[in-house]
Computed example of a mutant assay.
Amino acid sequence: MAARKMAALACILVILRLSEAAVYKVGDSAGWTTIANVDYKLWASTKTFHIGDTVLFEYNPQFHNVMRVTHPMYRSCNTSKPISTFTTGNDSITLTNHGHHFFFCGVPGHCLAGQKLDLNVLLPASSTPLSDPPTSSSSPPPSTTITAAGVPGPSPSHAASLPSVMATRIIAVVALLVILAFTNFAS
């Protein structure tokens, strides 16, 4: 019986940890584009990003890409030496470190037209990353983890997270109750 309760507790901790992560589609329904005149600075300011959250860049890969860059490169729209480049049109990036993460479209003129994004990932209660930083690669996989660019940026946004985060937490609590009920019933 004690082993079942410990297993249930372990499951609960995993579920609660996973329930804290949110997925943000960059630009919401417009996605990553220059056509819809999306204000990505405004978009990011309405979100609160945490370690473990995922940002999803959806775009037409024939016309756009995503480059992760340093702060100076971001400010000047310099595409010469990006930290990484994503080209699938459906790039899912998990944020593993706090600080600012800088992205823009490397197609000539797109960054200057406003297709650029500064995400500020807030420091969690414990500052341990969820995973080790990835090894560098010239062509990262569609789903990857990134670390902060390590440079200063604008002050953090304290806006509320997406409502889906709350729904995920409610699901986690319900799952917790089911596990506890099953554990008590089985004993």
Rank of each mutant, 00 (worst) to 15 (best):
A2P: 11
A3M: 13
R4L: 06
L13E: 13
L13Q: 10
L16I: 00
L16F: 14
R17S: 10
A21N: 12
T33Q: 04
T33Y: 13
T33E: 04
A36Q: 07
Y40P: 03
L42H: 04
L42F: 05
A44K: 08
H50W: 10
H50C: 08
I51N: 12
G52E: 13
D53A: 02
F57W: 07
F63A: 06
N65D: 13
N65C: 11
R68F: 08
S76Y: 04
C77Q: 14
N78E: 12
S80A: 06
S80R: 15
S80P: 04
K81F: 13
S84G: 06
T85Q: 06
T87S: 13
G89N: 04
N90L: 04
I93K: 06
T94G: 05
T94A: 09
C111Q: 12
L112V: 12
K116G: 09
K116M: 03
L117M: 03
L117V: 06
D118V: 01
V121H: 07
S126A: 12
L130F: 05
T135D: 12
S139A: 07
S143T: 00
T144L: 14
T144I: 15
T147P: 04
A149L: 01
V151H: 15
V151S: 11
S155G: 09
P156V: 07
H158R: 02
S161C: 00
S161Y: 00
L162I: 11
T168M: 15
V173R: 11
L177N: 06
L177S: 11
V178E: 07
I179L: 10
L180D: 11
L180G: 08
A181R: 08
F182K: 00
F185N: 05
S187C: 01
